[in-house]
Design a protein around this nucleic acid. Structure first.
Length: 826
RNA sequence: GCUCGGGUGGUGAAAUCGGUAGACACACAGGACUUAAAAUCCUGUGGGGCGUAAGCCCCGUGCGAGUUCGAUUCUCGCCCCGAGCACCA
C-alpha cells in the first residue's frame, strides 16, 4: 500500500511540475491574489514539522482560492544570507555558498514532495548577486536620504557570534541566536533611522487586519510616551542637563539627578574629589553584560559626581549622580529623580541615603514620611508652590506650560524604539556598498558599480572583525569621488535587511534593471494574505513596514503598508506538550510519516487535528483517523465508479424525501467547508466533508438500489471530490482521473451551494419552560407562532411542568425555540 | 510587575450580533461478518440518580457573584496556564 501511495503522489507531482501547471505569467494576470508565506532560511537541510504546517496548509488554502477562481500568486524563496546559514556552514566545515545551495536544493525537493502549488519560475534567493545588488541599491537610497548613518554608540555585542546585534535581537540580555550574553561596547556602526518613522509605524497599526496580540506587541515595542523635556542648569556653570520625564507634575519632588554612565557630561562635571571613583564606576559598568545588569536589578549602584543642578521652578539645588539604572539610549540619558513617586528612584534614594520629598497626595490613602514604598499613582499636588491643589493631569500641563514660558522645558514625545543597527562583523551577508575615503569620507558606491560582490575566498570564521577586512582584493578601492586610495566598508548587512523588501521582488523576481518593476509591484501588492510565525511579530514585520513606508516616500511604490492582512499559524508541539527541539530529542520528523502514509495524509492530519492558529501537541492516534477516512473515500469512489459514466445532470423535480435529505447534507457541507476554509478553519472544513461522506453512505445503505437517484449521486460525489482536492491534492487528482476526467481537478471550480436546498419542510424547535430545555417539537417550516405555541404547550413534558402553574408570558425565537415563563398559581 | 491570549467530556476539538453545549473524530463498550484475528460495518458513549422497562429527574463549559425569560458567550472580582515585554524615567 505504502509503495503505491508513493508512486501515486510522485506521478501527480511530476504531472504538475513538468507541465508547470502552477507557474505564473506575472504580466498576464489581471487581478492577482498574492498569498505570501514568510520564506525560510536554509539553516538546516530539512523541512521540519513547522514548515509542513505552514507551507502545506497554506498551499491548501491557495489551491482552494485557485478553485474559487482567484488568480493566485503564491511564490517561494529563500532567506539565505545570515547567521543561521553561516553557522550551519561553519559547523559542517563547508563554504556557506555551497551549503546554502545544497540546502535550498534539498528543501525545494522536499517542498515538491509536499506537492505545493508554487510558481517555481518566480523563486528568489537573497544571497545571490542578482538579489543583493538591489538590497545594496535600497541601502543607498536610505543613505542618500540621510536615513542610513554611521555613528559611535554603545551597542550590544554578542560574545558568541562575534558581532553586534540589533536591539530587537537581544532577548533577556542575551543573543537571540546563540544565547551568549550581550555586552555593551562603544563602536562605530551603521544605523537605519527607523525612529523617523516611529509615529507613522505606530499610527498605522490599528487599521491592520492582524492578530490582536501582534499589534499590541508592536505598539509596545515602539513605545510612545508623552511627557516633557526639562533643562536643569548646572550650579556654577553655563552647562545644562536635559532630562525627559513623563511626570512633570512631580518636578517639585526632585531630590537629585541621575546620568547614565555613558552620558558625555558625566566626567566633565565631576568634582576633582569624585573623578577617581566615578571613572572606576563607569569602567565597571562597561564590563557587565546586559544579562548581569538585569540579574542585579534590585541593587541600585551609582556614584556622586560632586556637582549640583538647579531645579528650574523651585530653584532648589540638587546633587547629580551617575547610575547604570539610567539608560543612555532612551530619552536624554538623564533623569530627574523623584524618589517619593518612582520605584527605581525610591530604591536608589534608600540605598544612597538621599532625601525623599512628598509632592503628590493620594486621594484614597494617607501618605506620610517616611514612605515604605514609592507612591506612583496620580493624585493631588502638595509642596509644589503655586501648583498645590492641582490634579496630576492638570499639573502636567500647567508645569509644562510654565517651563515653556521660562524657556527651560517643553512638551515632548519619546519612543522606546531605537534606530536599527544594521551592520554586522560577519562574512555571510550583503556587503555594505560604501567606500571610506580619507579625503571625502563615506562615499556611496555608484549604482553602475553594483553589486559589490561578496568575495568567495575569505577565511570567514568570526573573529570580531569583519572577515572582509583581511581580503585585500575586496577592501582596497579607489574613491568614486576623488579617485584617491580608499577602503571599502567591510561590514555586511543584517539579514533582516534582505527580508525587509523581498515581498516586493517576487512579481519581478528576475528583473535585471530594477529592484522591482513599479507597475508589476503595484499590481500585485500589497500582499493579500501574509502568513508566518508569531516569532516575527516585532523584528521582520516592523522592519518590512518601515522599508515599505520609506520606499513609498521615495515614490517607488504607491502603498505604504506591505501586509494589510496577516495570520500566524500555530506551533506543533512534541507529544509531551513541549516545544520540539533537537536538543531535547522530542522532535517529530515529518519524513517517516510521508514515507509510510504519503504527504496527503500528513497534510490532512495537520488540517484536521488542530485549530490552525492554535497548533498543539502531536499525537499519532489522530493520524490513523484521517488515513482511515481517506481509504474509505477511495473505496466509495471505487464502488460507485459506474456512476460517472452514463449519468446526466440530475433533475431537481420529483426528489424523494431521502434525496432531499441527502441534498440538504451535501449543500450544508459545501457551505460549511467553503466558509470555514476561507477563514483557515481547516479542521471544521474536514468535519463537514466527513458529514458529507456519512450522508452519502447512509443514503446508499438505507435507500434500496433501484430507488437511488444515480444522477444526483454522481453530481454530489463530483462536488465532494472537489472539496477534498485542496486538502489531499494527489489522492483527489487520482480519484478524479479514475472518474474519467483528463484534466487536473484544479482547473475546475469549487462547488457552489444553493440556499434553497438548505430550507427544510419541517424544522425542529426547542421547547423550554423557565429557560430550561424540556422537549423538542417538529413543526412545519411556515408554522405560525400561535400554532407552535399550541403544539408546544401540548407537549407531555411541558404539560407536566405546567401543573399548578400559570403562564406569565412566552418568548418565541423563530426557527429556534419557544420558552414559557411560568409561576405558581396563587 | 505590565500587555495580550486561553481554561469546554477519557482525548483532539466544535458552537460565541446571548437561543437545544459537546458537531466531526479518536478511544472505549456491545453487536454483525470470520474457524480465529485484523480490516470493515452497525449501535451506544458528559457526569450522577431513580426505574424491570419505555422513560423520568438533577448537575454540568476554571471559581464566585451580577445582568437576562435564557449566559460557554456580556459585566465585575478571583484562581490557573501560555506567550510577549520588562530599570523606557
Amino acid at each position: 500500500m505504502a509503495k503505491d501511495i508513493a508512486a501515486l503522489e510522485e506521478k501527480w507531482q511530476k504531472n504538475w511540475y513538468d507541465s508547470e501547471q502552477f507557474a505564473v505569467d506575472v504580466r498576464s494576470l489581471k487581478d492577482p491574489f498574492y498569498i505570501l508565506n514568510m520564506f525560510p532560511y536554509p539553516s538546516g537541510d530539512k523541512l521540519h514539522m513547522g514548515h509542513w504546517y505552514q507551507y502545506g496548509l497554506i498551499d491548501t488554502w491557495a489551491r482552494f482560492q485557485i478553485m474559487r477562481g482567484r488568480e493566485v500568486f503564491q511564490p517561494m524563496g529563500f532567506d539565505a544570507f545570515g547567521l543561521p546559514a553561516e553557522n550551519f556552514a561553519i559547523k559542517k566545515g563547508i563554504h556557506p555558498d555551497i551549503s546554502t545551495i545544497k540546502n535550498t536544493e534539498h528543501m525545494i525537493t522536499q517542498m515538491k514532495r509536499m506537492g505545493v502549488a508554487y510558481p517555481w519560475n518566480c523563486m528568489i534567493n537573497t544571497s545571490k548577486p542578482e538579489y543583493y545588488k538591489w538590497t545594496q541599491w535600497i541601502f543607498l537610497q536610505f543613505f542618500k536620504a540621510g536615513l542610513a548613518y554611521r555613528k559611535e554608540a554603545p551597542v550590544n555585542w554578542c560574545t558568541g557570534c562575534h558581532t553586534v546585534l540589533a536591539n530587537e535581537q537581544v532577548v533577556d540580555g542575551a543573543c537571540e541566536r546563540c544565547g551568549s550574553g550581550a555586552v555593551r561596547k562603544n563602536l562605530t556602526q551603521w544605523f537605519l533611522k527607523i525612529t523617523d518613522y516611529a509615529d507613522r509605524l505606530l499610527d498605522g497599526i490599528d487599521p491592520l487586519d492582524w492578530p490582536q496580540k501582534t499589534k499590541a506587541m508592536q505598539k509596545n515595542w515602539i513605545g510612545r510616551s508623552e511627557g516633557a523635556s526639562i533643562n536643569f542648569a548646572l550650579a556654577g556653570s553655563d552647562e545644562k542637563i536635559e532630562v525627559f520625564t513623563t511626570r512633570p507634575d512631580t518636578l517639585f519632588g526632585v531630590t537629585y539627578l541621575t546620568l547614565a554612565p555613558e552620558h558625555p557630561l558625566a566626567l566633565k562635571i565631576a568634582s576633582p574629589a569624585q573623578l577617581g571613583p566615578l571613572q572606576d564606576y563607569i569602567k565597571e559598568t562597561e564590563k557587565h553584560t546586559e544579562l548581569e545588569r538585569i540579574a542585579q536589578d534590585d541593587q541600585k549602584t551609582g556614584v556622586f559626581t560632586g556637582a549640583y543642578a538647579l531645579n528650574p521652578l523651585s530653584g532648589e539645588k540638587v546633587p547629580i549622580w551617575v547610575a547604570d539604572y539610567v539608560l543612555f539610549s532612551y530619552g536624554t540619558g538623564a533623569v530627574m529623580a523623584v524618589p517619593a513617586h518612582d520605584e527605581r528612584d525610591f530604591a536608589f534614594a534608600k540605598a544612597h541615603d538621599l532625601p525623599i520629598n512628598l509632592v503628590i497626595d493620594s486621594p484614597s490613602q494617607k501618605l506620610s514620611l517616611p514612605l515604605t514604598e514609592a507612591y506612583t499613582d496620580k493624585g493631588i499636588l502638595i509642596n509644589s508652590g503655586e501648583f498645590d491643589g492641582l490634579s496630576s493631569d492638570e499639573a502636567k500641563k500647567a508645569i509644562t506650560d510654565k517651563l515653556s514660558e521660562k524657556k527651560c522645558g517643553a512638551h515632548k514625545v519619546t519612543f522606546r524604539l531605537r534606530d536599527w543597527l544594521v551592520s554586522r562583523q560577519r562574512y555571510w551577508g550583503t556587503p555594505i556598498p560604501i567606500i571610506h575615503c580619507p579625503a571625502c569620507g563615506e562615499v556611496a558606491v555608484p549604482e553602475e558599480d553594483l553589486p559589490v560582490v561578496l568575495p568567495e575566498n575569505v577565511e570567514f570564521k568570526p573573529t570580531g572583525e569583519s572577515p572582509l577586512v583581511r581580503c585585500e582584493e575586496f577592501i582596497n578601492a579607489s574613491c568614486p569621488k576623488c579617485g584617491g586610495k580608499a577602503k571599502r566598508e567591510a561590514d555586511t548587512l543584517d539579514t533582516f535587511v534582505c527580508s525587509s523588501w523581498y515581498f516586493l521582488r517576487f512579481p519581478s523576481a528576475h528583473a535585471q534593471n530594477f529592484a522591482f518593476e513599479k507597475e508589476l509591484t503595484e499590481k500585485f501588492l500589497p500582499v493579500d494574505k501574509y502568513i508566518g510565525g508569531p516569532e516575527h511579530a516585532i523584528l521582520h514585520l516592523l522592519y518590512a513596514r518601515f522599508f515599505t513606508m520609506f520606499l513609498h516616500d521615495q515614490k517607488l511604490i504607491n502603498f505604504s503598508e506591505p501586509f494589510p492582512s496577516l495570520i500566524h499559524q500555530g506551533i506543533i508541539l512534541a507529544p509531551d506538550g513541549q516545544k520540539m527541539s533537537k536538543s531535547k530529542g522530542n522532535a517529530i520528523s515529518p519524513d517517516p510519516y510521508v514515507e509510510k502514509y504519503g504527504s496527503d495524509i500528513l497534510r490532512l492530519y495537520l488540517c484536521f487535528a488542530f485549530n490552525y492558529v492554535d497548533g498543539g501537541p502531536w499525537n499519532d492516534e489522530g493520524f490513523i483517523a484521517v488515513n482511515r477516512f481517506m481509504e474509505k473515500v477511495e473505496r466509495l469512489f471505487e464502488e460507485q465508479s459506474e456512476l460517472f459514466s452514463g449519468t446526466t445532470i440530475p433533475s431537481m423535480d420529483n426528489l424523494s424525501a431521502e434525496d432531499k435529505k441527502l441534498l440538504f447534507s451535501a449543500h450544508n457541507s459545501i457551505k460549511g467547508a467553503t466558509i470555514d476554509t476561507e477563514r483557515f478553519m481547516f479542521n471544521t472544513s474536514i468535519a463537514r466533508l466527513m458529514e458529507f461522506y456519512n450522508a452519502v453512505t447512509d443514503y446508499l445503505r438505507l435507500v434500496p438500489a433501484p430507488a437511488q437517484n444515480k444522477n444526483l449521486l454522481a453530481q454530489l460525489l463530483t462536488d465532494f471530490i472537489k472539496i477534498l482536492a485542496p486538502f489531499a491534492p494527489h489522492r483527489a487528482e487520482e480519484i478524479w482521473q479514475g472518474m474519467g476526467n483528463e484534466t487536473s481537478i484544479f482547473k475546475f471550480s469549487w462547488p457552489e451551494w444553493d440556499e434553497k436546498y438548505l430550507v427544510l419542510d419541517e424544522i425542529n424547535m426547542a421547547v423550554m419552560v423557565n429557560g430550561k430545555l424540556r422537549g423538542e417539537i417538529t413543526v412545519s417550516r411556515d408554522a405560525r407562532e400561535d400554532a407552535i405555541k399550541e403544539i408546544a404547550s401540548a407537549h407531555d413534558k411541558v404539560v407536566r411542568q405546567l401543573e399548578g402553574m400559570s403562564i406569565v408570558k412566552h418568548i418565541f425565537v423563530p426557527g429556534k425555540l419557544i420558552n414559557f415563563i411560568v409561576k405558581p398559581k396563587s
